[in-house]
């Protein structure tokens, strides 16, 4: 399989003179195309910093991050925003939809920012909405939707541009268990049917159990890795719980 993401010896050091914090301490891993990878670790383990560096929102101190063979640590800020809208899709914990825009417009905006031809916009939004089961709420405003619907609109926005990599930050964090489950099912569908590649940061072992592979991070390093293989979700969930126990009580 082709590698979409290659992280090598990534370091991120906060602060200077006197008080230095190593948020990332030489972490390396790969993600292949069509893979659904979960990242777990306690608060302060460095997983958010990792996500921010891959998102190009934060700069790494040293090391490299290749996305589709482009080293994003060498891009300048003008190239970065262009890279973000073409190659990356974002899903945030608090949805981050624009409340002045309808679902349709929220999704379309990702395309128009990427300067997709105006003729294709409507069609592409409809196709994605159909896939994620939100075709009937396209004319609603975020305030008129449930949390689960909002997060699915946000997911549609993230993948409508066919990004190389979708970055999800605690996507189920604000959802009830039923909506969480529905969302995670649609993530699986995104990977299976649309060949999306997803990197998802989460606290929640239930959400993580939907992934193909889990990276556990501690003190800015890769602590261990779990691969689902042929395990059922149930079995994978138990394995995740075991690692979390080893990682330490509140490891979540």
């Amino acid at each position: 399989m082709r590698e979409i993401l290659q992280v090598r010896d990534l370091e991120k050091i906060y602060g200077g003179r006197g008080s230095v914090t190593k948020a990332l301490n030489g972490i390396s891993f790969d993600v292949d195309k069509g893979e659904y990878v979960g990242v777990m670790g306690a608060s302060g383990s460095g997983k958010t910093t990792l996500l921010n560096c891959i998102s190009t929102i934060d700069n790494a101190t040293s090391g490299s991050i290749h996305i589709e063979n482009v080293d994003i640590t060498t891009l300048r800020s003008g190239q970065l925003s262009d890279f973000r809208c073409r190659k990356l899709g974002f899903i945030f914990q608090d949805y981050n939809l624009l409340d002045t825009l309808t679902a349709f417009e929220n999704i379309a905006l990702a395309l128009t920012i990427a300067k997709v031809s105006t003729r294709d916009v409507t069609r592409r939004v409809r196709v994605i909405a159909e896939n994620l089961g939100i075709a009937d709420i396209l004319n609603k405003y975020p305030i008129q939707m449930s949390g689960g619907q909002r997060q699915r609109v946000a997911s549609a926005r993230a993948i409508v541009t066919n990004p190389a990599l979708v970055l999800a930050d605690e996507p189920t964090g604000a959802l009830d268990s039923k909506s969480s489950q529905a969302l995670l099912e649609s993530f699986r569908a995104m990977v299976k049917e649309l060949q999306s590649t997803i990197l998802m940061v989460t606290h929640d072992p239930f959400s993580a159990s939907y992934a193909d592979r889990i990276l556990f991070i501690r003190d800015g390093r890769l602590f261990t890795e779990l691969i689902r293989g042929r395990d059922s979700r149930r079995v994978f969930f138990d394995k995740i719980m075991e690692v979390m126990t080893v990682l330490g009580g509140e490891a979540a």
Binding site: T100, L109, L111, T118, V121
Partner: peptide, 19 residues
């Protein structure tokens, strides 16, 4: 006018104004 509406941040800009 789709050619205008679906261009850059125009959707956002117009909605900002009207809201």
């Amino acid at each position: 006018i789709k050619g205008v509406y679906f261009k850059g941040l125009n959707i956002f800009t117009l909605k900002q104004l009207s809201s």
